[in-house]
């Protein structure tokens, strides 16, 4: 717990270091005043995405309340990853809006959305195989650091100081997820579960206000699942940030989620507390097919 508290306070202090545009500075100022209580809510309103005739998302709406874990579930092809692509700016919706506090996210390029404190891990690993884990995590510090080509090339003292400070922070975050021993190993040499953890750590290195987790425990062993679920719960409890979770493992979803939105063929078919959603006939139908008896399948 002590560890977690330090993570929080450090987060506030560090965030003062960075920023170029006034907008970012403003966003940062609110973050600084606010951690952990002032995490903005994420409002997704009537988002529609079409790919050449196929409607991947059809007027989907949901709200992620500050400091909660919001799960996004549904069968394969339901539009969960598309939804994440909209939230992180990779994909522009044909209609609808996504608002983080007072910022409209649709139409912003991905790096600006990252600048507002939205971090994401990918369903398929996106770690450079040869770089060390430490370098991977330092990449997560990109938006919080300043050193440009000139400062890095000439090894200016300011760049060296910044580098040292952020390496220290990276070590703390690695310890938080349990990877401090692996920092100088190439990321590609780690077992799959640890690579997923490294990616989670990299997202945490961005000091996010909203964390988007795309299947964080997929392909993990039971022990790794427990470990990851504990880290995710720890992140929510200690950092107070909001988490949007896409996951097929219902055990993890039910254990972690405060609210669940269910998608099927790009449409929202249910939204609410985990227990309610679990018993929703529409959800059961989507997962198990037609005319199932809700009483039997809910368990």
């Amino acid at each position: 717990m002590e560890e977690h508290d330090r993570v929080t306070t450090e987060a506030t202090g560090r965030q003062a270091a960075a920023h170029a545009t006034a907008q970012e500075a403003a966003a940062q100022a609110t973050a600084q005043a606010a951690v952990p209580s002032g995490i903005p809510s994420l409002d997704v309103r009537d988002v529609t995405v079409r790919f050449a005739g196929l409607t991947a998302l059809d007027a989907v709406s949901f709200t992620v309340r500050p400091g909660t874990v919001h799960a996004l579930i549904g069968p394969n092809g339901a539009g969960k990853s598309t939804c994440f692509n909209v939230l992180s700016g990779v994909c522009r919706p044909a209609a609808g809006s996504v608002r983080l506090g007072k910022h409209e996210l649709t139409g912003l390029p991905p790096h600006r959305i990252a600048g507002l404190g939205v971090a994401r891990i990918f369903q398929n690993l996106a770690l450079p195989p040869h770089a060390t884990v430490e370098d991977c995590l330092l990449l997560g510090r990109h938006r919080l650091t300043r050193a440009g080509f000139l400062a890095a090339g000439l090894r200016l003292p300011s760049a060296a100081r910044e580098d040292r400070r952020h390496r220290e922070r990276v070590r703390e975050i690695a310890a938080f997820v349990g990877l401090e021993r692996q920092l100088d190993r190439p990321a590609g040499s780690l077992p799959y579960g640890q690579q997923k953890l490294a990616e989670l750590a990299r997202a945490l290195c961005m000091e996010p206000r909203i964390l988007l987790l795309d299947e964080p425990v997929a392909g993990m062993t039971a022990a790794e699942r427990r470990r990851t679920a504990a880290v995710v719960a720890g992140v929510r409890d200690s950092l107070g940030i909001s988490i949007v979770l896409v996951e097929h493992d219902m055990g993890v979803v039910m254990r972690l989620a405060d609210a669940v939105t269910v998608l099927d063929f790009g449409r929202r078919i249910a939204d609410g507390a985990p227990a309610d959603v679990q018993n929703d006939p529409a959800v059961v139908r989507a997962y198990l097919g037609e005319r199932a008896d809700p009483e039997e399948t809910a368990s």
């Binding site: 992180s88 991905p110 790096h111 971090a119 996106a126 990109h142 650091t145 080509f149 090339g153």
Partner: peptide, 27 residues
Amino acid sequence: GVLRGRPGRAMNAIRDHRIAAGVIGVP
């Protein structure tokens, strides 16, 4: 210096995972 510093990490990220690089905050 460039390659081992912050710009180098961003450049490699663009090479290895272009979309992820943007999402991590690299313009």
